[in-house]
Design a protein around this nucleic acid. Structure first.
Lengths: 238, 238
DNA sequence: GCTCAATCTGACCAAATGGTCAACTTTGTC
DNA sequence: GACAAAGTTGACCATTTGGTCAGATTGAGC
């Protein structure tokens, strides 16, 4: 009648993957993947444990065996997402080159929108409805993350490597711009009359966003770091 | 047993606001306003007609009298939102000055995020879950709107008034950047440790987004059109 | 003031849904 | 191979919720 306690702990012997453990990890992974997709498509309230169970190809009662409640399952899904969320900004360090750092960060964010659209959507839905489950996480971890990155940016500014910008707002806008390629893909597909967004669409978005950010930061890309992504004609300033 | 048929039609005599009509319009308006807020806060599935009725201070059955089903009420809410949605881009015309047009458009979008956050959230939620109710609207009206604006932009480009940009993507990013101030305000408040976003926050966002867009479009703002909104130091290009 | 349609509403219902449980099977361990 | 713990699952239940309805009330037109 329990089992959740063991989640995340490896057996003392390390890598002895017993049949039981392997199966449990597989079931949990299947449930989490199914839940992520269902939560992304329908939101928390719209999702039913029956839908998730069906997608994971398990009986509903089994889902409730691994994750006591729908809310607990939802939190587990969110946690995985949040862990990956901030890791992508590791390249923004004082020692780094601003142009490269921003370009790479935008690339990574765009890639995330392309490869893990469900994760982005679940997160977007959570925030959209007031972040009932991750509010403290935002206040704590994300706040620290932004402060840290803001310090890096302010230092770049002080060193004359870029124009002054409001760093938190830069991130807000940057997140919105990149994540919209996951969250609102439906709108883009409809407007562009595409059945699916193409790699070219993501490339065009990344190029545009990079140009916008570097432009706003007054960063000249002398090394042509982003040239390979630019689909439009070259810079032709007078 | 009916009544919806009369919605939107004025009585033949024009402005003879009978007690009955006045009351009906008032009730409908109250229900729509309540519904917009509830749908924004909880999404379609999360909202209950009981919640909406309570917020509108009407018995639930009365809500169902004016709007037969929850879905119909939801569609009515969406329709109002969509109508206001595109009107804000009227300033983007070939005769206009690109710098002014973009600056004003961003201002208007930002103002909408500030003044009608619920509308933005309802719309975001709808798109996020695959636009089940407005898919054809996107394919039709919004598609046409984007095409039209893209023509204007392409003409500005041809006239050498701005660098070439991918117009549809420019709008996608621009919408995301401005609407995030409504949709994700919760995240911003948490990160900035504010109880509410201040006018200054919206101004900073608008200034940054304007700078980004104009920067990406290679538009120099010789007339200082956006200077009054810029909070950071002036342009100091070498 | 009478009539009728529009409006209002408390009470009610069927369906959906999160969650439980008891019985059953499988697996690890001694 | 026996025992206990972990895992599995069909059946079940209480609650929520969208929607209905019959009867009461009110306002407009005459």
């Amino acid at each position: 009648m329990k089992g959740q306690e063991a989640r995340g702990e490896e057996p003392s012997s390390g890598t002895v993957a017993t049949r039981r453990l392997r199966r449990r990890l597989d079931s949990e992974a299947r449930i989490l993947a199914a839940a992520e997709q269902i939560f992304a498509e329908t939101g928390f309230s719209g999702a039913t444990t029956a839908m998730i169970a069906a997608k994971a190809r398990l009986p509903k009662a089994n889902v409730h065996y691994y994750f006591r409640t729908k809310r607990q399952l939802y939190r587990a899904v969110l946690q995985r997402i949040l862990e990956a969320w901030l890791a992508s900004g590791d390249g923004i360090r004082a020692e780094a080159d601003p142009a490269t750092a921003f370009t790479d960060y935008i690339s990574a964010k765009m890639e995330a929108s392309r490869r893990q659209p469900y994760a982005s959507k679940v997160f977007a839905n959570e925030i959209l409805h007031g972040a009932p489950e991750v509010d403290d996480y935002l206040r704590d971890q994300v706040h620290r993350w932004v402060q840290e990155k803001a310090r890096v940016i302010d230092r770049w500014v002080a060193e004359g490597r870029m124009r002054p910008v409001d760093a938190p707002h830069l991130f807000f806008v940057l997140w919105a711009a990149t994540q919209t390629y996951a969250d609102f893909d439906c709108q883009m597909r409809a407007v562009l009359k595409r059945r699916r967004l193409t790699p070219g669409d993501y490339a065009a978005g990344a190029a545009l966003i990079t140009r916008m950010v570097l432009g706003a930061c007054g960063i000249r890309t002398g090394n042509g770091a982003d040239r390979r992504r630019v689909t439009q004609g070259p810079d032709r300033r007078a």
